[in-house]
C-alpha cells in the first residue's frame, strides 16, 4: 500500500498517476457495482470553510457511492471556524475522526497548512484562486471519455484567460500530452498571462490568439468556455460590449466540427446560452458527472484501496 499523499496541486501527480486515475474512473463508470462497498467503514470529511455546493456534493456523492460515509460543514458560519478557530486546530481535531479530508478554503495555501497538522490525506477542493486539482482531473477525464485520447487535440480556451486559474491548470496538464494545440480566445483585457504562453512554447505546443470564436470554430476539437466577471472591467459599457463577443450560442456553433465538445467548469451564468444545452456537443453536464467519478478514483488512490482482481 502506498503511503498517504496529499493532492494540493495537479503537479502532485505524475502523468502515469493521472492516466491511472482516469483509467480507474472509467472502470468505475463501467462497473459501478464492483465499487459500491469498497470503502465500507471509511469516512470522508468535507471541510468547506467557504461554500461551494456543487464541489462538496460531488465529493460526498463520490464517497457514498463507494460505500463510505461523510461528515463535515458547508461554510465557516456553521463551524467553529466562524468563532476564529484556525484551520490548524480544526484539522488536528477532525484528523482524529476520519480517514480522508477534502477541504476548501478562501485563503491560498490553506490545505498545505492543514497537511502539516495531520497524517490523514488532504484533497484540495479549492484554495482561493490558487489551485483546484480535482477540477483539472475532471476536465481530463471528460476529454478522455469523449475524445478517446488526450493527444493530438486542438483546444480553444474562451473567456477570462487572465484570471481563470482553471484554464492555466488545464493548459499545464494538457502540455504533458503529445500534439496538443491551443487557440486562445479572449478580450485584450483578459489575455492569457505570459508565463502560461512560455510554458506552451517550452513544451513546443503551438498556440495562437484570436478575438472571435467564429474565426476558429471549424478547427477546434474542444471549446472550453469560462465566465467573464463584471468586476474585471472598469466600466459597464466595456463589459457589456465584450460579454456578447464571448457568449456561445447555437448560431456560432454552425461551423463547428460534428464531434467537437463544449466544456465549462460551471456554474454558468450567461456565457453559454441555454439554446446550446440540447446540442449533442454540449458536455458541461456530463463533465459534472465525470467530476464525481474522478473524485471516487482519487479517494481510492489516497486510501490505498484497489478493486479486487
Amino acid at each position: 500500500m502506498e503511503a498517504p499523499r496529499n493532492i494540493i496541486n495537479i503537479t502532485d501527480l505524475s502523468t502515469e498517476e493521472i492516466d491511472e486515475l482516469i483509467g480507474v474512473a472509467q472502470d468505475i463508470m463501467a462497473n459501478p457495482a464492483d465499487y459500491q462497498d469498497i470503502c465500507h467503514g471509511k469516512q470522508l470529511a468535507t471541510l468547506f470553510f467557504e461554500p461551494s455546493t456543487r464541489t462538496r456534493l460531488s465529493f460526498e456523492s463520490a464517497m457514498l457511492s463507494l460505500g463510505g460515509a461523510t461528515l463535515g460543514f458547508s461554510e465557516a458560519q456553521s463551524s467553529s471556524a466562524s468563532k476564529g478557530e484556525s484551520v490548524s486546530d480544526t484539522i488536528r481535531v477532525v484528523g482524529n475522526y476520519v480517514d480522508i479530508i477534502a477541504m476548501r478554503h478562501p485563503k491560498e495555501g490553506a490545505p498545505i497548512a492543514a497537511a502539516m497538522k495531520t497524517v490523514v490525506p488532504i484533497i484540495n477542493a479549492g484554495d482561493g484562486g490558487h489551485f483546484h486539482p480535482t477540477q483539472t482531473l475532471t476536465d481530463l477525464l471528460t476529454i478522455k471519455r469523449q475524445k478517446g485520447t488526450l493527444e493530438g487535440l486542438t483546444i480553444g480556451l474562451c473567456g477570462d484567460l487572465k484570471f481563470g486559474r482553471t484554464v492555466h491548470s488545464l493548459v499545464a496538464a494538457m502540455l504533458r500530452y503529445k500534439g496538443v494545440k491551443f487557440v486562445l480566445i479572449s478580450p485584450d483585457e483578459l489575455k492569457m498571462p505570459d508565463y502560461v504562453k512560455e510554458e506552451m512554447d517550452e513544451a513546443g505546443a503551438p498556440w495562437k490568439e484570436v478575438a472571435h470564436m467564429e474565426d476558429v470554430m471549424p478547427e477546434l476539437d474542444i471549446l472550453y468556455m469560462t465566465r467573464i466577471q463584471k468586476e474585471r472591467f472598469f466600466n459597464e459599457e466595456d463589459y457589456l460590449r465584450l460579454k456578447g463577443t464571448f457568449i456561445l450560442n447555437r448560431a456560432k456553433l454552425k461551423t463547428a466540427k460534428e464531434d467537437m465538445i463544449i466544456l465549462h467548469p460551471l456554474p454558468r451564468v450567461d456565457e453559454i446560452s441555454v439554446d446550446v444545452d440540447d446540442d449533442p456537443r454540449a458536455m458541461y453536464f456530463t463533465q459534472a458527472l465525470c467530476g464525481k467519478y474522478i473524485r471516487m478514483a482519487l479517494i481510492l488512490k489516497l486510501l490505498g484501496i484497489r478493486k479486487e482482481a
Partner: peptide
C-alpha cells in the same frame, strides 16, 4: 506579504 495567503490570517503557522 500576499493578503490572500493563509499565513495572513492564521497566526500559529
Amino acid at each position: 506579504k500576499n493578503p490572500r495567503c493563509i499565513t495572513s490570517v492564521e497566526q500559529e503557522i
